[in-house]
Structure formats: C-alpha cells, structure tokens
Design a protein around this nucleic acid. Structure first.
Ligand SMILES: [Zn+2]
Ligand SMILES: [Zn+2]
Ligand SMILES: [Zn+2]
Ligand SMILES: [Zn+2]
Lengths: 157, 157
DNA sequence: CCGGCTATGTAATATCATCACATGAGCTAC
DNA sequence: GTAGCTCATGTGATGATATTACATAGCCGG
C-alpha cells in the first residue's frame, strides 16, 4: 500500500504544471477523466469512465470520454491497454521535453485484480527492435503487455 | 515474394497432420478459416473472414467465425493481433509437444499494407520478463506488437 | 465585427464480440 | 437398438467498444 491520496494529488499537480507550461487545456472533463484513472491503479474501460462522468453531469455521450482519452494519451498522461481495450493513468512523469511521448512503457496486467503495473523500459534494444532491424522494419509504436498474476494475487492463491 | 501457393499448401498439410496426430477435428469451417488467413500474410478482422464464409455458404453468423478462431488460436494455428482486433495465421510450425502453444511470437505490423511479420522469439528473458521477475509477477501470456512501416512500404515512400 | 481555432453537445451508426438456446452427428453403455 | 453423452453447428438476439457527422459555443487576433 501507498499513500494513494498523495499519489493522486502529486500526479494531478504534475499534469497541471505540464499543461500550464505547454499551453495545453486541461478542461474539466479531461481533468476528471485523468483523476478517475488515477484513483484506480487499474485499467478502466471507456464506458466505465463514461458512467462516472454521467453521474457527475460531465457528459453522457461516448465522444466525451473518447475525446478526453485521446487528449490524455496524446500527451502521455494515459496509456491504452490493448489487451483489455481499456485505459490506465501513466505512472511515469514523462517530462515531455519536446511535448511528446518520451517513454516506452510495458505493462504487467493481473488477470484477477486487473491492477496494472507500468514498468520502466530498460535501455537498449529489445526483441522487437532486434527483429525489426533485421527485417528492415521501422517501428513507430510498440505494445508490450503481459497478462498473469500479480504478487499479491499469487500470495492469496 | 515467395511461392505462396506452396506456402499455403505446406501450412495446411502441417495442420492436417497435427490434427490427425492429436485427435483434433479440423472441420470444414475451421479449415476454411485457416486457409483464408493463410492466403493473406495480413491480419483480417473476424467480420472480413465471416464475409468470405458467407459468400461460400459456410455460415453467416458471427459465432461461426469466432468459434473457428477460438479453436485455431487454442491450438496455435492462428494468433490474435491485439492492436488491430484482427487475426493472422501462424507462420511457425509449433509442433505442440504438449498439445499447447509452444512459442512466444512477436509481430511487426505495417500500418500501410497491414502485412504482419511474425518473428521468432530469441532465447532468454526480454524486458517484460525482467520487469515481471523484479515485481514478483507471474506472466501467463505476453503480447509484443510493433506498428510501423515494412521494408517494402518504406522503399515505396 | 469577423474569421479561424479549439472544445463541447448530441444523435446516429459502425465495428467487434458474446450469449442463449435449439439442433444434429458420432460414439458408448447397457 | 436406443438412451445418454460429447462435440460441433445453426440462429437470433444482445452486449461492448469506438467513430462519424454535424451543430453549437467560447475565445482570440485582426
Ligand atoms: Zn496510488
Ligand atoms: Zn492481482
Ligand atoms: Zn506465403
Ligand atoms: Zn507495408
């Protein structure tokens, strides 16, 4: 366990600072979507998020949440988990030196508690990069996701 | 380019042999789905496949194709491409010593021609495994997919 | 004020996947 | 033989995820 309220507050402060510095508009809906994702350390589906927004009067149609997620992903605050068709708040600061995504995340996804661990990518080429080089393939975006059991759920079982 | 007719024939012969050896039923619908995927070296959506089955009178409802794909994936003949919500025929023999998936594929997906290159995983732990070990996480399934431009499309551009 | 830009509101639709229940073909026990 | 079993299929409906299209509103520089 960690101090989750502080964890959320820190992340929101970072997001505010970054948006201020880069001239990005962290509008109410966008801000709330990020908060909702930070409250969990789990992946949420777009419609799960939308349900919460609806309950709070922040919009009721799918485009609301997809637009907010597009913005948050574009600027590296949120990642999409392809294997779950779901979204998770980024746990890495990613200063975004050039206003862009600066890191190459990999995710460990627990199949029972759905918690998502975002790992820091090591330096150096991985298997994908090695394979791409030998095939003359230019990688623009890579997805690394593993499903399994987290330490807590293994202990419980 | 390669001799694609031979490529398909070889793969189908392998599938027939394996199903015979392991008592698996490669029924007409399952067989045809595998053939359709082998004909392309690209990922096809479930409904793309379904359209072809329909045209051939092999079924018209989604469960037809999803059941066939479940069978083919379970036995390692087909892989799901998570980033595309699509499916591709496996290019590795995977003898399936214990009737199970024996390899750990990674995919290079061209964003313009949608061709999929399935790479042979090298030996040794990758970044996901390293991260999982240090987190006490037990990986059961991993997804490695990269999107970008294949050599042919890079040359064309 | 106007024109362009960004964000939002709203309805409809597209795309991907599963559920539920009925039917049929092949096999075994008795 | 036939009842019961398993596996695969047929079929209609529904659920889950995501996008399009177009209208509206605020803001800001000219
Ligand atoms: Zn926390
Ligand atoms: Zn867990
Ligand atoms: Zn071929
Ligand atoms: Zn290409």
């Amino acid at each position: 366990m960690h101090d989750h309220a502080a964890c959320i507050a820190r992340a929101m402060a970072r997001a505010d600072a970054r948006c201020g510095a880069e001239g990005l508009q962290l509008t109410p809906a966008r801000r709330r979507v990020l908060e909702i994702l930070l409250e969990e350390h789990r992946a949420l589906g777009a419609y799960d998020i939308l349900d919460r927004l609806r309950a709070e009067g922040l919009g009721s149609q799918p485009p609301i949440v997809y637009r907010a997620l597009d913005f948050l992903m574009k600027h590296g605050f949120v990642h999409r988990i392809e294997t779950l068709n779901a979204f998770v708040a980024c746990t890495e600061p990613t200063p975004g030196d050039r206003g862009d995504i600066a890191h190459m995340p990999a995710f460990l996804i627990c199949r029972t508690c759905r918690h998502v661990i975002e790992t820091v990518a090591e330096r150096g080429p991985g298997k994908l990069e090695t394979a791409a080089d030998s095939a003359g393939f230019a990688i623009e975006h890579a997805v690394r996701e593993a499903e399994g059991l987290c330490a807590a759920c293994r202990a419980a079982a």
